[in-house]
């Protein structure tokens, strides 16, 4: 009888947790929901009632069509896409190499370099921005290539910091065994280490993609040519122009959010599993 009571209590607890959890989730999603319903309303419907879902008279997809054109979506999407992919690729390659050698080399130099890199996460972009702009202007790098170089320089420290935690968990014996079998140093790195780090690498790339894809400040000061404008830059300009046209603006917000939501639905399992395998130490 006691056991039954216990079970019942347990069930009620779970029910309560589920209920509480979904209330919280609703609060988290509410802002997005409100934006979504308004993005499908005509301006008249918007002024009539901002909180209701669009009805037959007020429903429209015109906002999306307009916002799509005004954002020059295809072009700015491709700009963002190319810049993000290339930057993340090099960040991953360089920081995996560095993190691995930093874990495997147990010298003072190695320790100091790792500490310096970790601390540099605190460095705000503002403190390097102006001199960097001046130098890059002189060597004609105020373009996507310069931007990618800056992303690599800023991205490696955080990525090395995270990857360091993963690589520490790879047993050294595995590498030693491979070395005994005649596996060369580079082979070891590309054939053994990289495959073992699959989850970690996806995890780190997700974090970098989120950051670079959404970044506004850096491209706003580095990309001077109109044709290279990324999606966040176009959004900013758009809001400068249409700040009172919320019907159009909400649609534009959704157009910008959608690619990253699609990406997330693929990547989400790696975020949690990556974080779980990462040793915080």
């Amino acid at each position: 009888m006691k056991n039954l009571n216990h079970k019942k209590k347990f069930k009620i607890n779970k029910l309560f947790l589920t209920f509480f959890g979904f209330i919280l989730a609703a609060i988290y999603l509410l802002p997005i929901y409100i934006l979504l319903i308004n993005s499908f309303k005509t301006q008249k419907g918007f002024f009539e009632n901002i909180l209701s879902i669009p009805n037959k008279e007020t429903f429209t997809v015109e906002n999306y069509k307009n916002a799509f054109l005004k954002l020059n979506f295809l072009r700015s999407f491709l700009n963002s896409f190319a810049i993000t992919i290339i930057s993340v690729f090099f960040i991953l390659l360089f920081s995996t190499m560095a993190a691995w050698i930093l874990v495997r080399t147990k010298t003072k130099t190695s320790k100091v370099i790792f500490c310096l890199l970790s601390i540099s996460i605190l460095i705000p972009f503002q403190s390097t921005m102006l001199p960097l702009l001046m130098v890059f202007k002189k060597i004609k790098l105020l373009n996507p290539i310069g931007l990618i170089i800056i992303y690599i320089g800023f991205g490696v420290s955080f990525s090395i910091f995270i990857l360091h935690g993963f690589i520490k968990n790879i047993p050294k014996e595995l590498e030693e065994a491979a070395a005994i079998d005649g596996c060369g140093f580079f082979q070891l790195f590309f054939r053994i280490i990289i495959p073992l780090l699959k989850t970690a690498l996806i995890f780190v790339s997700v974090l970098n993609v989120i950051w670079i894809w959404n970044d506004f400040l850096l491209p706003s000061v580095v990309l001077t040519d109109q044709k290279w404008k990324t999606l966040p830059l176009m959004t900013y300009n758009f809001f400068g122009e249409y700040s009172k046209n919320w019907d159009l603006a909400t649609a534009a917000l959704f157009i910008c959010i959608t690619p990253i939501i699609i990406f997330y639905s693929w990547a989400q399992k790696y975020i949690v599993s990556g974080m779980t395998k990462w040793s915080i130490k």
Partner: peptide, 22 residues
């Protein structure tokens, strides 16, 4: 040599973009 070779690409970018400008 190996140590610096593996570290060089990351460190170089970091120096150029972060340390030197500071």
């Amino acid at each position: 040599l190996k140590f610096w070779f593996f570290l060089a690409p990351a460190l170089l970018c970091f120096l150029v973009v972060v340390i030197i400008p500071i």
